[in-house]
Amino acid sequence: MSSRRSGAIRALSHVVLSGFSILCILPLLLILSISLSKEMDLLTDGYALIPKTPTLEAYAMVFRHPDQLLSSYGVTITVTVAGTFFSLLITSMLAYVLSRRDYPLARKTSFFVFFPMLFSGGLVPWYILVARTLGMRDTLFALIVPYLVIPWFVLLMKGFLSSMPASILEAARIDGASEYRIFFRLVLPLNKPGIATVALFCALLYWNDYWLSLLFIQTTRTVSLQFLLFRIMSNIDFLTSALAIQAGVRTQVDLPQQSARMAMCILAAGPMMFVFPFFQKYFVKGLIVGAVKG
């Protein structure tokens, strides 16, 4: 292998790749540094990559009233775990059926799944359905259910499952196994990389979402981590806007300090970073399979 690698090209590759890797990590370090800075230093000197006076004040402040933060962790973790599980189950069942070339309705069902990617009735009827007809407003269901079947994930999963040799399924069927048995005992275990890949996408979608919260959440106990962050940001934008300043609202509200905002960011983004390495092995393998079959 090594004989076919040219030294110059390899050196160049290392330079470019490590350069980009540093670019990827640096902004996170900046956020970390701000979260560890003294507030007055930030106000007078601005942001820096290395805190002038390192301090844990911001974290202490965030954790002084940990109730909201802890409950938001609870919400986000529950939603991510439950959402990913059920989403995977439904998605893979549907995708498996679509991947069966001998199923006469496969093509029609595929179009049925694909169509909503292009057309929707818009926000208003959808909101009415979720919030009023199904009565999910202000419940965790509103944060889980709307994302259960994402057509794009179904098609992705279909790509993975299509790569299975038909002979294996044929053999099982000859042995008299039911479709359910084939699916749960054979198809799922054989497609771990693909499932891990879709699982990661699902988990990311749920973990990073604030949109459903923005629409359906009304009380503090159902506020997720990302929504907590989003609210802080949108409050700052609103309260420092001309409208609010001139209405005299700004001075009545104390916004979180800059260092505390960044500490919240670290706390919200952190867990996903630790989870990723566990996924990484399967994830890349899954993509390799997926890349061949699209």
Partner: peptide
């Protein structure tokens, strides 16, 4: 991979 993948994990809010 691990380093280059980090930004992909951040939400746009972050």
């Amino acid at each position: 991979q691990t380093a280059m993948f980090l930004p992909y994990f951040l939400s746009w809010v972050v």
